[in-house]
Structures are given as structure tokens and as C-alpha cells.
Amino acid sequence: MQDITEHLVELIKSASTDLPPDIEQALKEAHQAEDDGSVAQGALQTILENVQMSRETGRPICQDTGTPIFYVWYPEGGSQRKMREQIQAAVRTATERTYLRPNAVEALSGKNSGDNMGVDFPTIHFEEWDQDALKIGLMLKGGGCENVGAQYSIPSPEFPASRDIQGVRKAVLDAAFKAQGLGCAPGILGVGIGGDRATSMIKAKEQLFRPLGDSNPDPELDAMEKQLHREINTLGVGPMGFGGKTTVFCVKMAQLHRLPASFFVSIAYMCWADRRKTMTIKNDAVAIDAPQA
């Protein structure tokens, strides 16, 4: 297996410093939609300038470079152990080059490891697939938006909601309201329906890889994604919670099988700085891409 550490450093740099075009386009549309001279429009203006500066100077869009979450799809015969070592080496190098902030803090002592190495840090998901290319997705998920994620077990005495699409809608609206601007709105909501507490949230986060403009193959979920997008924006929370028209760019949902006893709705909130990129390596050809519809 070839050493792809340097390519991985480039993937990290690209994710941290070069915002994907679908998100940037959505930011521009949001900027146009807000009232001229409003605080909301001013916030989007600053964001758009910052995106441009980060790209031009190769510096992190946001200082909170988040949890590096890697998804690796590898051909038969690939070594997870070697890939893990190379990913860890790339994360260390990227931290030295200030593409990443040292972000791994031991939970109880508060001690920062200094090089982004820690228990399950960075996070890596592996999956073997039937293609002969190696594909690695990377998402940098910051703490502010992670903190406003939510998980509902429905129904409960505290949250009476039906075990159907309307119950899911209620949970998502509640989570979006409670987040206010704290997740660095305008955000993107990934929703996992069903599963157990862990798989449900993993599924929710995976939705954040989807391009903004795609459609859900499930017609019921597709309709609810669009409905929730409209409804959440009527809340008026707006960019940064300053009040305004764009609170979320989209809602992306997926369902999993669940136990008869359980019905989880998990909501992963991604900030406007939706830093996710994919690298594909086939033979010697390396391509780094943003999600495309």
C-alpha cells in the first residue's frame, strides 16, 4: 500500500481553508436575501469576505477546526492499521502547519495533547467497498455547532410527539429553535431517524456530507426536508442569531431500522462553515472534490 500521508495533509488543508462551492453559493444567496444594511446582511458580508481570505491565504476558515471525522472506503485487501497510522501522521503534520488547531483535550484533566491525538481522536470510520479506488471523506466539525445537536426519544412525558413523520418534524423544529444562533447559523441539519442512540447520531452526521442541492430518494423524507427548511426559516433566528431570513440552508434526513421499543430522532447541527471534502485515489491519480449534486 502506498504512503498517502502527504495527500491526506492536502485533504485536511483543503477542508480547513477552502469552503465548498455549494455552501459559498448558499451564503451569497442568503446575503442577497437579507435586508440591505441589516446586521444579518453585515454578518454574511463578513463571512463571505472571510471565506475568500482563507482560500487566498491558505488559513483556517474557522479557528475551531473541530473534530476531524474521516470516512475511509477502501478496496479489498487494504490495511486499516496502515491507513489509520497515515491519517494520524497527516493530522499531526497539518496541526504543525496550522491547518488545524490542537483540539484534543483529555476529558477530565482538560489537558490538551497538543497534536490532535487522543482517544478516538481523530475519528475514523472504515468501510470496505467493491471498487478499486480508495476514497476518503473528511469533515471538520466544530464544537459550537456540535453542542447544539440534540437527540429525542419519542414520545416521552417531557416531549410528547408521535412516532411518525410529524413527530420527527416536531423534534427537528424544537432543536432548531433551541439552537438559536449558537451553532453559527445559517446551519445545516442532519437528521437520523430510528437506530439506537449511537447509530442514529452517526447517520445524522453522515447526512452532512450530502450536497446542498440534492434530493432525498425517499419521497416522504424529501418532502419533509423541504418543508422543514421553509418552516425553520420562518422562525426568524437568522445569521448568527441576529434575526433574519436564513436560519438553515437545508435539512437532510435518513432513517434506520429501530427496536420496537425505541424511536430516536437525532439532530446534528453543522455551522455555516460546513467543511467537508472527499479525496479519491485511483492508481496514482489523486482528486480532491467538494460534494456535488
Partner: peptide
């Protein structure tokens, strides 16, 4: 005072 979340390069400058 509210700074713009995520505008890290611009503020660093």
C-alpha cells in the same frame, strides 16, 4: 460585543 462566528481569518488579520 458579538463577533462573527467562523470569521477566523478576517479577525486574525
Amino acid at each position: 460585543l458579538h463577533a462573527i462566528g467562523g470569521a477566523a481569518t478576517l479577525i486574525a488579520d
